[in-house]
Amino acid sequence: MAVPAVVTELAGGDRLVPVWENELGGLTFRLDDGNGRVRYVKWVAAGTPEIDLPGEAERIAWAQGRVPVPRVLAQGSDADGSWLVTEGLPGRSAVDPRWIAQPAVAAAAIGRGLRLLHDALAVDGCPFDWSVERRLAQADERIAGGMRPSEWAPEHRHLGLAEARAQIGEQPPIDRLVVCHGDACAPNTLLHDDGTFAAHVDLGSLGVADRWADLAVAAWSTEWNYGPGYDAFVYEGYGIAPDPRRIAYYRLLWDMS
């Protein structure tokens, strides 16, 4: 693949390996100096407003020392795009082949990691917002931009735009306000080799919201990555019983926003 010039420059003499490309074209590279020092570089092309790397750097810095998250080493931008360099952490992504082969273990660790994050980060003093109100505004922007139900998960495609928008306008009562991860899908949890939670990564949407905004999507993502039947392990690891109404609401909001 074509490696952005700034990533090559940041790598220096380190071995450079592309490890991830997201749906918006954002790239992640692993830089390994061969002596135990590993860094990760996230890069996104200019004009991709959905990915805010300066905002992610701020969120990581705020959470640093309270929960296991990467340490920011550098952040910058040029005419081609922006980048974020973080220090490598021990552990493997929950979608590493090791954990794809042990999905129940991984799903439970995802739940435990979310509980740790929600308990450790104080809502009071958190400067970041991931509220329903903010996300409804994002949904309305997407609708105005031509969003189609065919872009949604299969379980939501039967809904028309008007009906779906009406449903997300009826927010269930907040269960518990927490500082949410904001993108608690399986790939963004790291696990130690013994199956215990190691760290959270990809914190660009971290902010205050109902804990079900994270829980509903974290459990949902186990279907995408492991197949059906593992969502219960997320809730068990977290220590909570499933809440069908809130799960359905926040999954639809996720699709639309």
Rank of each mutant, 00 (worst) to 15 (best):
Thr8Val: 09
Asp80Ala: 15
Ala106Cys: 11
Asp255Val: 06
Leu190Trp: 02
Glu21Ile: 09
Asn35Lys: 15
Ala104Ile: 11
Asp119Gln: 12
Pro54Arg: 08
Arg37Asp: 15
Ile51Arg: 13
Gly111Phe: 00
Gln75Glu: 07
Gly26Asp: 07
Leu177Met: 07
Arg37His: 13
Thr48Glu: 12
Pro49Cys: 10
Val201Gln: 03
Ala209Leu: 07
Val44Pro: 01
His181Phe: 06
Val67Ile: 13
Glu50Val: 09
Asn225Trp: 12
Val7Thr: 02
Val72His: 05
Tyr40Thr: 03
Leu206Gly: 00
Pro49Tyr: 09
Glu50Met: 06
Gly12Asn: 09
Tyr238Cys: 03
Leu121Asp: 04
Arg142Ala: 01
Ser205Gly: 11
Trp83Ile: 02
Leu190Ala: 02
Arg112Gln: 14
Tyr230Asn: 12
Glu23Phe: 14
Asp119Ser: 11
Arg71Glu: 02
Tyr235Asp: 08
Ala120His: 15
Asp32Ile: 05
Ile174Pro: 01
Pro18Glu: 15
Ala101Phe: 07
Asp214Ser: 06
Ala139Met: 04
Gln64Leu: 15
Ala104Cys: 10
Ser150Ile: 07
Asp129Ala: 09
Val6Asp: 02
Asp194Gly: 11
Leu159Met: 03
Asp80Met: 10
Val72Lys: 03
Ala198Gly: 09
Gln64Phe: 15
Ala164Asp: 10
Pro49Glu: 08
Leu191His: 06
Tyr230Phe: 15
Ala120Asp: 14
Leu117Cys: 00
Asp78Cys: 14
Gln167Tyr: 14
Leu161Gln: 02
Leu177Ser: 04
Gly125Ile: 05
Arg30Val: 09
Leu190Thr: 02
Phe128Leu: 04
Ala162Lys: 09
Gly145Leu: 05
Ala45Leu: 07
Trp20Pro: 03
Phe29Ala: 08
Ala199Thr: 08
Gly207Asn: 10
Gly25Pro: 08
Leu206Gln: 02
Phe128Gly: 01
Ala164Met: 10
Tyr40Glu: 03
Asp231Tyr: 09
Val6Ser: 04
Ala108Glu: 02
Thr48Met: 10
Asp78Leu: 14
Pro68Gly: 01
Gly195Thr: 01
Arg251Pro: 00
Leu136Met: 13
Ala106His: 04
Ala63His: 01
Ile51Gly: 10
Glu151Asn: 11
Arg148Gly: 00
Asp124Arg: 15
Phe233Asn: 07
Asp78Ile: 15
Ala122Phe: 11
Ser257His: 08
Gly237Met: 10
